[in-house]
């Protein structure tokens, strides 16, 4: 038997790894995948707390998070394709047009 807090701490670890990937990676596609990792980590704590309260509302929230993630992935990858067409690079350090 596993304490519930193990699941929540695992979710925190995955979230922090997502933050680390967001900050350390230079490739815009990998940065985007780090955001997906953070969303997944939050989903895990939703499901764990849904178990704790014996309520299904948490799982329905996970369902909505997945829909929003799918929408975000579609629009975000469209933006990435448009940026790549203009700048021929996926490196975020090269996208410094409005940086002072």
């Amino acid at each position: 038997m596993i304490p519930l807090s193990y699941y929540l701490v695992l979710s925190a670890i995955l979230f922090c790894l997502g933050v680390a990937g967001f900050l350390l990676q230079r490739n815009i596609v990998t940065i985007f995948m780090s955001v997906e990792l953070m969303l997944n980590a939050v989903n895990l704590s939703f499901v764990a707390l849904s178990y704790h309260f014996r309520l299904l509302d948490g799982q329905i929230f996970v369902f909505f998070v997945m829909v929003v993630a799918a929408a975000e992935a579609a629009v975000g990858l469209g933006i990435i394709i448009a940026v790549f067409r203009n700048r021929e690079s996926l490196n975020v350090d090269r996208m410094n047009l409005i940086k002072w």
Partner: peptide, 26 residues
């Protein structure tokens, strides 16, 4: 497995390796 794949996602340089790690996490 989830933590290992997530660490691999952060450390890889090639995006396709990161994508495969993310599938492992999921």
């Amino acid at each position: 497995a989830a933590v290992g794949f997530a660490v691999n996602l952060v450390l890889q340089n090639h995006p396709i390796h990161s994508a495969l790690s993310l599938i492992g996490v999921m």
